[in-house]
Design a protein around this nucleic acid. Structure first.
Length: 197
DNA sequence: AGCACGATGCTCT
DNA sequence: GAGCATCGTGCTT
C-alpha cells in the first residue's frame, strides 16, 4: 500500500499536475472502508488571469482554499446538488487547482456502485457523491492520511494515451479561456462502439 | 443515442 | 437576485 503523493508533487505548474494526476489513485476512507479509483480525467484552473477559474474575481470565502498551500483539497458546491473535488496546486498565495473530473473504481467497487445506485462515476459531481466527498473536506490536507482523502501514485499514462480538449461547462467564459485545451483525459477502455458511457 | 430542460441551494454582487 | 467548473429524466430520432 503506497503513501500519499508528497506536497512537492502539487507544488508545480497546474498543467503539469493535472496531467500527472491521470493514472494516479484517488483514495477515500469512508466508514473505515478503503475506496479507491484511478483518475481518468482532470482539468486545470490557473490563477486570477484565467477567467474560467473561480479566482478570477479575487479571493473570497468560497475559493480561499485555492490561495492556500498546495496539496490541499478545494471542495465547493454548485448547481444545487453537486460537490466538486479539486487539488490545490502551485505556491501558497497563487490561486490554482486541478479539478478531478472522473475515476474508474478499483477498490471497494461494490460500495461505490451501491452509493451510485448502479450508475457510473464519470463526472465530477458523480465521483464526489460516490466517495462521500462534501464541503467538510474543503481544505483537507491530501498529503496525509488523517482526513481520509488522499492521492497515491498509480500506473503512469503514456503521452499517446492522453487526450486534451477545452474545459467543460464554461458557457459564459470569454475566449481564449473558454477553448484553451486544459482538460486531460485517458479515454475509457471501451472507447469506440456504442456502449461507452 | 442524442438533445433539451428543470432541479436545487449556495456564493457573490 | 443572478449565476453557476452538473446531473438525471424524459422526449425525440
Amino acid at each position: 500500500m503506497s503513501k500519499p503523493l508528497p506536497r512537492k508533487f502539487y507544488n508545480r505548474p497546474t498543467l503539469t499536475v493535472a496531467r500527472g494526476l491521470l493514472g494516479a489513485r484517488l483514495v477515500r476512507i469512508l466508514d473505515g472502508v478503503r475506496l479507491a479509483g484511478i483518475i481518468t480525467e482532470s482539468e486545470a484552473y490557473v490563477g486570477e488571469e484565467d477567467l474560467g477559474c473561480h479566482a478570477k474575481s479575487g479571493k473570497t470565502k468560497r475559493n480561499a482554499a485555492m490561495y492556500g498551500p498546495p496539496g490541499h483539497a478545494y471542495v465547493y458546491f454548485t448547481y444545487g446538488n453537486h460537490w466538486m473535488l479539486n487539488a490545490v496546486t502551485e505556491r501558497e498565495g497563487f490561486p490554482a487547482a486541478a479539478l478531478i473530473r472522473a475515476i474508474e473504481p478499483v477498490e471497494g467497487v461494490e460500495i461505490i456502485l451501491q452509493r451510485r445506485g448502479g450508475r457510473d462515476t464519470l463526472g465530477p459531481g458523480k465521483l464526489a457523491q460516490a466517495l462521500g466527498i462534501d464541503g467538510s473536506l474543503n481544505g483537507a490536507d491530501l498529503c496525509t492520511q488523517e482526513s481520509g482523502l488522499w492521492i497515491e501514485a498509480g500506473t503512469p499514462v503514456p503521452d499517446e494515451a492522453v487526450v486534451t480538449g477545452p474545459r467543460v461547462g464554461l458557457y459564459t467564459v470569454p475566449e481564449p479561456w473558454k477553448s484553451i485545451p486544459w482538460r486531460f483525459r485517458t479515454p475509457p477502455l471501451k472507447w469506440e462502439g456504442s456502449s461507452g458511457r
